[in-house]
């Protein structure tokens, strides 16, 4: 493999890796705090992409991305309040069933609203084309997406680790009953976390539209990888999810360059070996 190909593969891996990290953070927080394997996380990502495409027509590129973020975060809050909350006292398997049902409903709704045919979208004119990085040519838009997602990932991490509200979320993950006993309105923290996770997924979907295009089932394509990232990184560990996201993205991308058919399989081999060797995940504590 020559250097330019290697550089291209690693850059591609970092772009997808950042997306996985963004999805993983939301999924991990929801899993850690609410104890829900959110099966609908993929379709929320898809919904973000679709809202983006419609929003861009009305409000421009940045406006479209914000519309996707807000709309899907609000939907996330609604799902938490009307659905997930009702199931807080029963076995988490029911929330799995609920989120599976929601994912079917939302996927079909996308088809009803936007049609079953895929949509392609172009990056904004300012970011079209590619730049010469010396070792390889690389699309401008992808570089920008990489930076923006990296900033989002970092900001989420700092929010959870450095702010007061973040401390409350972490307290909730550690011990819900104790947090509630200390007078924290834990229900509202749940709603905010679910909404934030949904919003991050939607933003990921929105930013990726010019890179991956749109298809109603795009959520199912990415969901298994988001779960792999969460588990490989360690349940509830944000740095773990970020590291695992990048690792999965780069491994997948390098495998694409070396032996394409094995790209997806290598991710699952990685995860299985990871769980066997480090049961608590890469950076997980428990």
């Amino acid at each position: 493999m020559n250097l330019s190909l290697l550089a291209g593969a690693i850059l591609n891996g970092l772009v997808t890796g950042m997306l996985y990290a963004l999805m993983g953070i939301g999924l991990s927080l929801i899993l850690g705090l609410l104890n829900i394997p959110n099966f609908a996380h993929g379709v929320l990502y898809a919904l973000g992409a679709y809202v983006m495409v419609s929003g861009t027509k009305a409000f421009g590129f940045v406006g479209g991305a914000l519309a996707a973020l807000v709309a899907v975060a609000v939907l996330g809050a609604v799902i938490e309040t009307l659905g997930v909350r009702r199931l807080s006292r029963v076995h988490p398997d029911y929330t799995l069933l609920l989120t599976f049902g929601l994912s079917l409903i939302l996927t079909e709704s996308i088809i009803l609203v936007w049609g079953p045919v895929g949509i392609t979208s172009q990056p904004p004119a300012l970011l079209a084309g590619s730049v010469d990085l010396g070792v390889t040519l690389y699309p401008k838009y992808r570089l920008v997406v990489m930076v923006v997602t990296a900033v989002l990932v970092l900001a989420s991490y700092l929010f959870v680790t450095r702010t007061r509200y973040g401390a409350i979320i972490r307290a909730g993950i550690e011990d819900k009953d104790m947090a509630a006993a200390l007078g924290i309105n834990i229900r509202r923290v749940f709603t905010v976390t679910f909404a934030a996770g949904a919003g991050l997924a939607a933003l990921g979907g929105a930013l990726m539209t010019p890179v991956r295009g749109l298809l109603p089932t795009m959520g199912l394509d990415i969901l298994p990888f988001a779960f792999v990232v969460v588990v490989l990184g360690g349940l509830g560990s944000l740095p773990g999810a970020i590291l695992a996201g990048l690792l999965v993205g780069v491994v997948q991308s390098l495998m694409t360059a070396i032996w394409p058919p094995g790209a997806d399989a290598s991710v699952f081999v990685l995860m299985t070996l990871g769980i066997i060797a480090r049961p608590q995940g890469l950076l997980g504590q428990r």
Binding site: L5, N12, T16, T136, R212, P260
Partner: peptide, 8 residues
């Protein structure tokens, strides 16, 4: 859905 690697 990810053709970037193949295109590179």
């Amino acid at each position: 859905r990810e053709y970037s690697g193949f295109v590179s």
